[in-house]
Design a protein around this nucleic acid. Structure first.
Lengths: 195, 195
DNA sequence: TCAAAATCTTGCGCAGTATGCAAATTTTGC
DNA sequence: GCAAAATTTGCATACTGCGCAAGATTTTGA
């Protein structure tokens, strides 16, 4: 836990920049705030801003948490029903996301009307999906099915966050429950009388 | 079929710009080509380029086909098994996409390493997903399940294209078959012993 | 058929984005 | 403390995207 000063500073500055970006960005939309304004608000020079992030959209997204390695291993080796195991992984992951709801909400605001930010987030999801598909391959022979499950799983996270944003008085956790239930219902509907 | 000259011109110029963008973009990556180069290649001024598209990434994506209205109505009103109906919709849609495989392949190239372009495409998919979820709501009580199905459906298109790009000697249609089979398998796996 | 109205193209100018480079500053290890 | 390593910063530069107004083209309607 005792990282060198330099690394702690770096981490902290990155967070400050992300916060400044999100706060200014949620007010009037990220497109209407300049990188210079963000840099000033974060207390660094414009040039330094670009040392931390390639662009303001990346700064808004920041460094979202990845799937926890131990959770992935648990998913790979478990023999419980697949749906239960995946749901457990999602619950764990959402707990991490729920640690800073303020940021999560602001990220949502920015994503709503910024295509570039969505693209950047999409990149993150893509790599998570790949990682997950790799793990799921160990539990099923069919590669395409593993990809499909990975797709369903990662998109459940986004759907849950979206539901949590739009409904009032709902926790992230119950939002995920509702979304997951929807996916389970959808699975049943698709399986019915399928050839 | 006899549109005014102005509209036909407009449509044609848009296509020329898209082609120029994709051809230059696939060579060295879209980031390494300037809007001015694209404009020159397309035979218009830089300013006109921006009259047609907000940015070069949007020019690369162009105006992808949407779900056909009659197909959507058919899906809504059919009483056949849901999986069959959705597959039929997807087949129709992919046929339209397959009409210009050259463009489709170049779009894929550009998307691979351009976040902004992915974000723009994501916006298209989002609206398609909404449209589809609206339709699916008529066939099931559960809103979340409709959203989930819409998600699965639209992502099958992307997966199919991706598979078609990476495997040699495979048609778009058979790529979709494989992907869809994967989704069906995934559905069955999720349904097994689910509470 | 022709002139007015509507629409489109283009050049110019300007604010903002992003990066390379080198000097100044800060942190680290000793 | 001090030299080496890493970081921040200002400056220069190329590119993006759009407002504006002038000029060109197409459509409309008599």
């Amino acid at each position: 836990m005792t990282l060198p000063l330099r690394q702690r500073r770096r981490h902290e500055t990155a967070l400050q920049i992300q916060r400044a970006t999100l706060e200014l960005g949620t007010e009037n939309g990220l497109d209407h705030v300049t990188t210079e304004e963000i840099a000033v608000a974060a207390g660094v020079s414009t040039r330094t801003f670009f040392n931390y992030f390639h662009n303001k959209e990346a700064a808004a997204i920041g460094h979202p948490p990845e799937f926890c390695d131990t959770d992935l291993v648990a998913l790979r080796d478990s023999t419980a029903p697949l749906a239960e195991d995946i749901k457990r992984l999602l619950d764990e992951h959402l707990n991490k996301l729920a640690e800073d709801e303020a940021i999560l909400r602001m990220v949502g605001n920015v994503l709503r009307d910024n295509e570039k930010a969505r693209g950047i987030l999409d990149g993150f999801l893509l790599s998570q999906r790949k990682e997950l598909a790799e793990v799921l391959c160990h539990r099923m022979a069919n590669r395409q099915a593993a990809d499909a499950l990975a797709f369903i799983t990662t998109s459940a996270i986004g759907s849950a966050i979206s539901l949590w944003e739009h409904e009032n008085n709902i926790t992230l956790s119950t939002a995920l429950d509702r979304v997951w239930e929807g996916f389970m219902d959808a699975s049943k509907l698709l399986s019915q009388r399928g050839e």
